[in-house]
Computed example of a mutant assay.
Amino acid sequence: MTIDKPAGSVFLVEDEAMIRMMVVDMLEELGFNVVAETGEINEAVKLAGTTDFDVAILDVNVNGKVISPVADVLKARNRPFIFATGYGTQGVPENYRDRPALQKPFQIESLKQALDSTLRGIA
C-alpha cells in the first residue's frame, strides 16, 4: 500500500467550532494535513510564530477580534495565508486586501482553487 504525500500542511484559525470541523474535513478530503488549529486569537498569534506549515487559513473576525495580529506574524515569517470572511473583501483588514479571501460559506471547489493559486504564488 502506498501513501500519497499530503498536498500540503495547513494552519487554520476559525472561532466557530462547527465551521472549523467542516473546513478540516474539506482540507483532509483535498489531501491537506491540518497541523494546527485554533479558535482563539492569542493562541493563533503564538501558533503563527511557532508552527511549520505551507499555508494558513484565517477567519477575519475571531470572537469579535480582527485577525490582523496573526496576519502580521505570518507576513513577517513570509508564510502564505488566505482569509475566510462572511463580510466580503470589505471585511478583510485594509492593509491585507491584496491577499486572497474566501467568501463564507464556501464550497470545497472554492477552497481548492484558493489553496492551489496561493501555493503556486499566483494569488
Rank of each mutant, 00 (worst) to 15 (best):
P80I: 00
T85E: 05
A84M: 12
A123E: 11
R20F: 06
Y87V: 01
G88C: 04
P69N: 08
A56R: 02
V60A: 10
A17P: 13
T85G: 05
L27P: 06
K46I: 12
A101R: 06
D52C: 05
F83I: 07
I3Y: 08
V70H: 09
V35E: 03
R20D: 02
I122L: 14
L47G: 04
V60Q: 10
K46H: 13
P93C: 06
L27G: 03
V92A: 09
E43M: 12
E40D: 15
E43N: 13
V62P: 04
I57W: 10
T118C: 04
R77I: 04
R77N: 07
R99Q: 15
L12H: 09
K65Y: 13
V66Y: 09
S110M: 14
K46V: 12
V24M: 10
V66C: 08
L74E: 07
K5E: 14
I82F: 02
D25N: 11
D72S: 05
I41E: 02
D52A: 14
L30V: 01
V35P: 08
I41L: 15
L58R: 12
R79D: 03
F83E: 00
K5Y: 07
S9Q: 13
A71P: 04
D4H: 09
P6L: 04
G39N: 01
A44E: 06
D52I: 06
E14P: 05
T85S: 15
I67L: 11
P69D: 11
V45F: 14
G86D: 08
N95A: 13
E40H: 14
T50A: 10
R120K: 15
D98K: 05
D54C: 03
A114D: 05
E94C: 00
G64M: 08
Y87G: 00
P69I: 06
L102V: 05
L12G: 05
G88H: 01
Q90W: 07
F106C: 05
A71L: 06
K104Q: 09
F81I: 02
P6V: 02
E29G: 14
N33M: 09
D98L: 02
F83M: 04
I57L: 15
E40W: 09
V73D: 02
F11G: 02
E40I: 12
G39I: 04
T118N: 03
M21E: 12
I3R: 13
V23Y: 13
V62G: 04
I82V: 15
I122R: 09
F106L: 08
Q103N: 14
F11I: 05
N42L: 13
G91I: 07
V55S: 07
I67N: 09
V55Q: 02
I19W: 10
L30H: 00
G64I: 11
G91L: 08
G88T: 00
I41F: 08
A76P: 01
K65D: 09
D25C: 01
K46L: 14
V70K: 10
T118Y: 01
I122A: 07
I57A: 07
F53N: 02
R77G: 04
L119H: 03
L12V: 09
K112G: 00
I108F: 03
A76F: 02
R79C: 13
D54A: 06
F106P: 03
I3V: 15
V23F: 11
E28T: 09
F81N: 01
N33A: 10
V45S: 10
V70E: 07
R77Y: 08
S9T: 15
D116R: 10
N95W: 00
A114W: 11
V10R: 11
V66Q: 14
I19P: 04
T89P: 09
R77W: 09
M1I: 13
P93I: 10
L74H: 12
